[in-house]
């Protein structure tokens, strides 16, 4: 059997194979293979509409693909041909996988009815079932780490966008995830707030955390990732080490995309 997760490099944290996704009659992902090993930082880049966000959302099954196989944090979900809904066993696997991944949304999605600290301990206490005191201590340490220790008891609505996103990152970390997934984490932010969030993500990369980041911040992506993946119309057009993809891409489309973005940003 040649299932995902069995290869010479040891079990990957995340591996996708043959992912296809369509919305109505529009095919957004046309068969994607991708693997992230422990310690990998993968930057997913591409024009809007290229399918990169959808691909990221397919990992914790926020979008259920029509076909393909997902292996993440030790759980495998293989979609059968023509399968409309997940069966019971697959759903259980999705639940387990979700508690072992951290997801950071473009629009933060903090729970408005919970304070900052309560947002952090919500899932560890109520989903993972860990002791509350322990979770609070860890949450406080995480807030310290993202530089928001003093906002412990603040409400999300009282924070700036950059602060909210840093809380959201801490919330994702509170699950002690095997890997972190970032869906355009700075796109909803005012330009002057982007830096504080990127700084936190950069710090996480330096710690050696496994991450997949969908982003438009090309300079940041190039600097932080060890592998870049360029998506075009639902396919991987180019992938490789950042020096290759950003400086010397083989595909014309990747070249055009990268050069236009660097010109715009620099």
């Amino acid at each position: 059997m040649s299932g995902l997760g069995v290869n010479g490099m040891g079990e990957p944290a995340i591996a996708l194979r043959g992912i296809r996704k369509r919305f109505g009659d529009q095919e957004v992902l046309r068969g994607i293979d991708l693997a992230a090993h422990d310690g990998d930082v993968i930057a997913l880049i591409g024009a809007s509409g290229s399918g990169k966000s959808t691909l990221l959302r397919c990992i914790p099954m926020l979008e259920v693909p029509q076909a393909g196989e997902i292996f993440a944090a030790g759980e495998r979900i293989a979609l059968r041909d023509g399968q409309q809904k997940l069966d019971r066993a697959q759903q259980a696997a999705v639940q387990r996988m979700r508690t072992r991944l951290g997801f950071v949304f473009q629009s933060f999605n903090l729970w408005p009815h919970r304070t900052v600290l309560q947002n952090l301990i919500e899932a560890p206490v109520h989903v993972q079932g860990r002791p509350k005191a322990e979770c609070i201590a860890e949450a406080e340490a995480l807030l310290e780490k993202v530089g928001l220790a003093e906002k412990r008891d603040a409400w999300p609505a009282h924070l700036s966008g950059g602060q909210q996103q840093r809380v959201a990152i801490a919330r994702a970390l509170a699950l002690k995830p095997r890997a972190l997934l970032f869906d355009e984490p700075t796109s909803a932010l005012d330009p002057e707030l982007v830096g504080e969030v990127l700084k936190v993500i950069r710090g996480l990369a330096e710690e050696g955390r496994t991450m997949i980041i969908v982003t438009h911040e090309m300079g940041f992506a190039r600097e932080v990732c060890n592998k870049a993946v360029f998506l075009h119309q639902g396919r991987i057009e180019e992938e490789g080490p950042p020096e290759q993809v950003f400086l010397d891409p083989r595909s014309d489309r990747a070249r055009a995309f990268v050069s236009s973005h660097f010109n715009r940003n620099r």
């Binding site: 914790p60 926020l62 639940q95 387990r96 996988m97 979700r98 508690t99 991944l101 997801f103 949304f105 629009s107 933060f108 999605n109 903090l110 729970w111 408005p112 919500e122 899932a123 109520h126 989903v127 699950l175």
Partner: peptide, 20 residues
Amino acid sequence: GSLEAARVVGMRRFLMFRRI
């Protein structure tokens, strides 16, 4: 987004109803 954030941390239907 608040519901999506609950799903992505692995909340089941009843827990999500009760807490979120």
